[in-house]
């Protein structure tokens, strides 16, 4: 294990030196004007990044245990990349995903507004129900209610006859009849008288006769 570590540390060191040399060469080339600024910048950042990775790996190997230090350079490069990705992910999480804890103020507002909405909906539902029942009672015929209305009809297809008047007429006619009778009687009397007269006349006649 120890020889492997030493070998790897040597590898890292030589690699670091190689990268540092490449960086110097790049700067020299750029100073000479052999490469463009954009190419210089991209290559420089690439080499610097590589150098930084190598330094990190070297430091880790020195400080941490042997087991971890034994891992190849690719592992550390990948680890660093993973850490970066993890950090980016966390930042994104912080940015866009709100806390789901019930004590979060936004959640409280949501809960309150949800309760209000539900209460309003229940109120509307109750109002519709009461209105519906009211309309139903108003529109539908309740049998007991209509039978409770007492009605009286006093119209007639026949001509109205005033009985009391008839009775009066009858009594009047009876009176008349009585009067007639009495007058007839008096007439009779007069007739008698007449007759008397007649008789008188007759008598007179008779007398005269």
């Amino acid at each position: 294990m120890v020889p492997t570590l030493k070998k790897e540390m040597i590898d890292i060191k030589s690699e670091k030196e190689k990268v540092a040399r490449n960086l110097q060469e790049l700067e020299f080339e750029f100073a000479q004007g052999n490469i463009s600024k954009s190419a210089y910048n991209s290559q420089k950042s690439e080499l610097e990044s590589k150098l930084e990775t190598l330094e990190v790996a070297d430091r880790v190997k020195r400080l941490q245990g042997r087991g971890e230090a034994e891992k190849p350079l690719e592992y550390w490069t990948e680890k660093k990349e993973e850490e970066k990705e993890q950090k980016a992910k966390e930042e994104l999480m912080k940015k866009y995903i709100t806390s789901s804890s019930p004590d979060h103020p936004s959640n409280k507002i949501k809960r309150i507004s949800g309760k209000k909405n539900r209460a309003a909906l229940f109120a509307i539902l109750a109002l519709i129900f009461i209105t519906g029942i009211g309309f139903g009672i108003f529109l539908m015929k309740v049998p007991g209610e209509s039978t409770a209305v007492p009605m009286t009809i006093n119209q007639s297809a026949f001509p109205t006859l005033n009985n009391s008047t008839n009775i009066t007429n009858t009594s009047v006619s009876n009176t008349n009849l009585t009067g007639t009778t009495s007058s007839s009687n008096s007439n009779t009397g007069s007739n008698t008288n007449n007759g008397g007269n007649t008789g008188g006349n007759t008598g007179g006649n008779t007398n005269s006769t």
């Binding site: 209509s146 039978t147 209305v149 007492p150 009605m151 009286t152 009809i153 006093n154 119209q155 007639s156 026949f158 006859l161």
Partner: peptide, 18 residues
């Protein structure tokens, strides 16, 4: 409609609109 009371002469039955 409902059955109504009637005071009409020689009435058999009467019905009316309450």
């Amino acid at each position: 409609w409902e059955i109504a009371n009637t005071t009409s002469p020689n009435a058999v039955v009467a019905v009316g609109d309450p």
